[in-house]
Design a protein around this nucleic acid. Structure first.
Length: 641
RNA sequence: GCCCAUGUAGCUCAGUGGUAGAGCACCUCCUUGGUAAGGAGGAGGUCACCGGUUCAAGUCCGGUCAUGGGCUCCA
């Protein structure tokens, strides 16, 4: 059991029924956010040494089998290690087997890891002499006096260490795959091949880890999505364009209904004045995307649209001489919302103005980056833009922060929070960025002191941001909710309001999404619950199973009664055994199965089978069951196995 | 986009150059059952697509497309 699960249990005890509580209390907020940096235990350090040393062993095996292969970086990572190699030879799966075999031979030498300090000049000479130009390049970035080499057997490598005592200790490892990578992560630099593997201190741990990888497959939203009839990606439609099937559409619309309600009620984060809905177009004149800066800063992600008639007749006016066509398909909703704010004169009394829209956007994502529902090309954001005075923005950010926490806590997600600061590609002056970053930092200090982490250079081009990050079944991190400060778009669109002294002023703008995109959140939800949705979201909440022919009509009646009580219920009229019907219902992860046989028909009762709790003996009356369902839906009970 | 791998029935997968297979799902019939797969029969494939080698290609080669694991990028 990880710390995440413990936290989740503690939190569920704390939270009680989410729909009946008021705005979040400080103690609640203190619980859910998981600090990214966790203390390293002795065990972690041991594994770190094992993995790092195994990377060395692998590099030795590779250079043994493929002389002339040059080395990049080879660090330990979560659950394992990798090493980047530069070579003409493309590594195949068969090569991996050979390399692993060679590693097992080499480790038998029980070669000690010997540490040696070396001067910068000597290190440079050494690696240049060996033709290890990448290593040499790395040495150039190091300070003299801190450079160490580690030698094990015939293999030596630039390395800060520490390592295990000798290669004999490296036993429980497995090479998992080969992939492409770039030197220093820069796609303009040398193309390298990365071999990654996993390594542990005992055979049992290795076995368990490989088991967990198998288990993760059971939760994979792409597999469950197909099994449960949630969504598909028809090849003809184009990659990254999800189609919601009936079950998925039911979940999604229920989710949107809830999110809509949270916005227009303003219950979480903004009780003073709720969000107001907007509906804006999917395409805007290219000039609008110039004004917003998207053409200049986001062009690699943008789709352009044009009318074939205009194209055929040579009537297309190239936008700003770029020949881009007249319209851009929206990759973001912000320019539309900004234009709405810009309509008519605004007073300080109108602020803060909070516009939201479940806006569908399209972004050209490079083909290799697409990933089920977690990374698509067409998706719908629960997007909002808040226009406020500079004085108001800290409390606005706090409100959004609380909103995000509420939504994530409703499902009991483990998540962490990060501050992303300015990068190379940006618009606006440094003063403005200082102000924006300090503003976000002060809110984080207030709400999540010591629990957030900072990623320098990861901001958007228009402002710094706070991101909420959730992990998928394999532990990969995905950004969900986001709060982005923007002092730039208001200026680019020349937004203004009149302050209490009658003076024209520039509003501050906050871009924010709570779930991020419905698609990604949905995918993560499927993985979190292994496809067994909370009752309130389940596409089919109840399935009624008649035992025999004589109860088919009764089963229909029960299902109809449940539907008129507001639940998604269906009757199973198939000519199958009860066992088969139970199995089908459980496989479909339906929260409640109702079994009706001769006994129930006679007495006008039902027998309830719960996905999580088995037979509910205390519920025999339909009224009672309806009450039970209603309570569970209202409380948004979120259980998982 | 880059590296490696994969693509055979709706799904999961066998099939190593000689006329396309299984299980589940689907359809029909029998069975009407008390908490995780009742029985029999049937239908279903341009072996992702295009080209090449060969007397002969699901199988070998090349290209394209899609998917998976990574890199890079992001909600």
């Amino acid at each position: 059991m990880g710390p995440g699960l413990l936290l989740r249990q503690a939190r569920q005890q704390l939270l009680g029924c989410p729909e009946t509580r008021g705005p979040p209390r400080a103690q609640e907020r203190a619980v859910p956010i998981i600090p990214k940096q966790q203390e390293q235990t002795e065990k972690d350090l041991l594994l770190w040494r094992i993995r790092h040393s195994t990377a060395h062993l692998m590099a030795q095996a590779v250079q043994d089998l493929f002389p002339g292969t040059r080395l990049g970086f080879g660090p330990p990572v979560r659950n394992g290690f990798y090493y980047d190699f530069e070579t003409e030879h493309p590594f195949s799966d068969a090569d991996l087997k050979r390399i692993e075999k060679r590693m097992r031979e080499l480790r038998k030498a029980r070669a000690p890891f010997l540490r040696r300090e070396i001067t910068r000049a000597d290190a440079l000479a050494l690696f240049r002499g060996q033709g290890e130009h990448l290593k040499a390049e790395h040495v150039e970035t190091l300070e003299d006096g801190t450079i160490t080499l580690y030698q094990s057997g015939s293999f030596q490598d630039l390395c800060a260490g520490p390592h295990v005592e000798h290669t004999g200790e490296l036993q429980h490892f497995k090479l998992l795959g080969v992939s492409g990578s770039y030197w220093r992560g820069d796609e303009h630099r040398e193309r390298l091949q990365r071999i990654h593997g996993t390594a542990w201190s005992t055979k049992q741990e290795l076995k368990e880890h490989l088991g967990r990888l198998q288990e993760a497959k059971r939760r994979d939203h792409r597999i469950l999505g197909r099994q449960l009839g949630l969504f598909e990606f028809p090849e003809l439609a184009g990659p990254g364009l999800p189609f919601y099937l009936p079950n998925g559409a039911l979940v999604m619309e229920e989710m949107k209904r809830w999110m809509w309600q949270l916005h227009v009620s303003g219950a979480y984060g903004h009780p003073d004045k709720p969000y107001e809905p907007l509906l804006t177009p999917h395409i805007l004149r290219t000039e609008a995307w110039h004004t917003s800066g998207h053409i200049q800063n986001y062009r690699e992600n943008m789709y352009m649209v044009y009318s074939l008639d205009e194209l055929d007749h040579g009537l297309l006016k190239g936008a700003a001489g770029e020949g881009l066509g007249n319209y851009g398909l929206k990759p973001m909703n912000c320019p539309g919302h900004v234009m709405v704010f810009g309509l008519g004169k605004k007073s300080y009394r109108d602020l803060p103005t909070r516009y939201f829209e479940f806006g569908t956007v399209y972004r050209y994502e490079r083909s290799g980056t697409l990933h089920g529902m977690l990374r698509v090309r067409g998706f719908t954001q629960d997007d909002a833009h808040i226009f406020c005075t500079p004085e108001q923005y800290p409390s606005e950010v706090e409100g959004v922060f609380d909103f995000c926490c509420h939504v994530l806590d409703t499902f009991g997600f483990d998540y962490h929070v990060g501050l992303k600061t300015r990068g190379e590609k940006r618009i606006g002056s440094d003063d403005i960025w200082d102000m924006a970053e300090d503003g976000l930092r002060s809110v984080l200090e207030k709400r999540a002191a010591g629990k957030y982490y900072v990623q320098e250079g990861d901001a958007t081009f228009y402002g710094p941001k706070v991101d909420f990050v959730i992990k998928d079944s394999l532990g990969r991190e995905w950004q969900g909710g986001t709060i982005q400060l923007d002092f730039n778009l208001p200026r680019r669109f020349d937004l203004g309001y009149i302050d209490s002294h009658g003076k024209p002023c520039r509003p501050v703008m906050i871009h924010r999404a709570i779930q991020g995109s419905f698609e990604r959140f949905f995918g993560l939800l499927v993985e979190e619950f292994a496809g067994a949705f909370p009752l309130w979201l389940a596409p089919v909440q109840v399935r009624v199973l008649p035992i025999g022919l004589d109860q088919r009509e009764y089963a229909q009646q029960v299902a109809t009664a449940l539907r008129s009580a507001g639940f998604r219920a269906q009757a199973d009229g198939s000519a199958e055994t009860l066992n088969k019907k139970i199995r089908s219902g459980k496989t479909a992860k339906i929260p409640y199965l109702v079994v009706v046989g001769a006994r129930e028909l006679e007495q006008g009762t039902i027998t309830v089978e719960s996905y999580f709790d088995g037979k509910l003996r205390q519920i025999t009356a339909l009224d009672h069951f309806v009450e039970h369902l209603a309570k569970e839906v209202a409380a948004k009970v979120a259980r998982r196995r």
